[in-house]
Amino acid sequence: MLSRKVEIWVGLFLLAGIAAFLVLVFKVANVEVQAGNSSYTLYARFTNVGGLKVRSPVKVGGVVVGRVSQIELDPERLVAVVTLNMDGRYRNFPESSSLSILTSGLLGEQFLGLTPGFVDDESVMLKDGDRIADTKSALVLEDLIGQFLYSMGKKD
């Protein structure tokens, strides 16, 4: 009753729909399939997170090693607490590593730059649930401009 052509087209239509959906999920939303416990969590406190967002990347030397999974305000200390979801392949960051909020380009997206600390015999590596103590908050453009104008004014 149904011609072969109709069946093939409907099959292709459904496949195209699934393919487009997968493209949206993996290429556009960039959802990463995480296999089991191959990721670990770190925390960091910032006085100002600036334009940092959930899913902003964490980079070491430009390489993405994790993403921001949560940004909250610590209700007691009144500072921002950022939760990092780190890629399980990169585990060897010493406790003395520092985290700073950087901007790609002048007005681009903000990301977290992780600078690994020194390693010696006594240094302990960061593990799941640890907090990175050494953090540098976001540079706020208005503050920068204010400082710049102030220093210009002093020169005259």
């Binding site: 949206l24 999920v25 939303a29 960039n30 959802v31 967002k53 959930v54 899913r55 902003s56």
Partner: peptide, 20 residues
Amino acid sequence: GAFWSILQASVEWRQDIVNC
């Protein structure tokens, strides 16, 4: 690279794709 990475950073699975 910039086009896609910024795009990917701002599109969220739950908020955007599921709602779509």
